[in-house]
Computed example of a mutant assay.
Amino acid sequence: MRTGLQRFIEGRVESAVSVVSLSPLPGGTMRHAWAVDLDVPSGPLAGSHRLIYLQDRGGAPLGSRLSREDEFRVLSVMHGAGVRVPRPYWRVPAGDASGVSPGLIVERVEGETLARRLLQEPAFERARAHLLAQVGEELARIHAVPTDALGCLARPALGKTPVEGQLADLEGMLRQIGEPHPALELALRWLGGRVPPSERVVVVHGDYRLGNFIVDPARGLSAVLDWELSHLGDPGEDLGWVCMRFWRCVDSPGARGLGPRQRFFDAYAGAGGQRLDPEGALFWEVFGNFRWAIVTLGQAYRHLSGAERSLELASIGRHCAEVEWELLRFLRRR
């Protein structure tokens, strides 16, 4: 792989380069991650570069996952707009002559991503004091980026709100999996009868949560990762996703997070975001949990169907029961 990466990068910078080191990093369910230390002796990129190669491993939790080209475009626009994202360097296309697998090469931003460490370790006590507010402010910046620069993102169907199309897609995935899940059927019916009007269409990150934030112990939020699920939609989608108990971003009954959700909402609104009313906040949190339940089933299905044998994917499926319980807790209050 080292030789292939070196060959690929040399073709992009039109100069000899040296891959000083290459080592694996903890990755996700869609990509393997590799730390790459690169030395470029001459040219516009002359100097040392600390990079990450995000190597595709196939599959997707949702059919809406972006192509590598479109994700690279989103990263480029966000970086140009001043959003805290890793600088995108290159996209590796399928079938490249270098022999390198498809993926993205981006800046390696130093910091921590693991939620457990961010929530518990003394080293991040200073960052925890203001991290939730930073997360809210950064989300407002993301939602303020003009959508006309991102023609690669599909527009909602004419006459329909973005979430109506998403509910149809999620229901299709549930039917394809073919398992009986009465709690999810109940949630789907509940959501379908309460779709709020969409007053504003923005770039939705799609997976905005602890685990996708790089955090510096002193400065707090350094970068937002994993944009492959970004799309055009209602800003409430990201707001509700952050508030899910599963991610531990905000305090929930029996699960302490970074702080009260009102702190997050206030920071988002203070940076120009739209404040949700209680009914809207409830809808989007129920929607987020329903969507996450479908994702967990889909990841397990990748394993059970034989498409990608992986204990990691299989284990994700067990979380569906936890999310179903959370959905029933919400719906019981209505």
Score class of each variant (00 low, 15 high):
residue 215 V to S: 12
residue 115 A to G: 02
residue 109 V to N: 09
residue 251 D to R: 10
residue 103 G to W: 03
residue 327 L to V: 02
residue 124 F to N: 12
residue 162 P to C: 14
residue 202 V to K: 08
residue 137 E to N: 03
residue 210 L to I: 01
residue 2 R to L: 11
residue 257 G to K: 09
residue 302 R to T: 06
residue 26 P to R: 14
residue 328 L to F: 01
residue 71 E to Q: 13
residue 74 V to A: 12
residue 50 R to I: 01
residue 95 G to H: 06
residue 31 R to P: 02
residue 168 A to F: 00
residue 13 V to W: 03
residue 303 H to E: 13
residue 155 R to C: 08
residue 304 L to C: 14
residue 248 R to E: 08
residue 313 L to W: 12
residue 323 V to P: 03
residue 181 H to N: 13
residue 242 V to S: 08
residue 207 D to I: 06
residue 224 V to Y: 01
residue 323 V to H: 10
residue 290 F to P: 09
residue 87 R to K: 11
residue 84 R to C: 09
residue 272 G to C: 03
residue 183 A to T: 13
residue 267 A to Q: 08
residue 225 L to D: 04
residue 89 Y to L: 15
residue 234 D to W: 13
residue 216 D to P: 10
residue 172 G to W: 02
residue 63 G to E: 15
residue 80 G to R: 08
residue 254 G to P: 01
residue 108 R to T: 01
residue 283 F to A: 00
residue 23 S to P: 06
residue 314 A to Y: 08
residue 306 G to Q: 05
residue 213 F to D: 10
residue 72 F to Q: 09
residue 287 F to P: 02
residue 45 L to C: 11
residue 268 Y to S: 05
residue 46 A to E: 13
residue 9 I to P: 14
residue 151 G to S: 10
residue 192 G to N: 14
residue 320 C to I: 04
residue 202 V to W: 08
residue 83 V to A: 06
residue 323 V to Y: 07
residue 2 R to W: 00
residue 289 N to I: 06
residue 168 A to V: 04
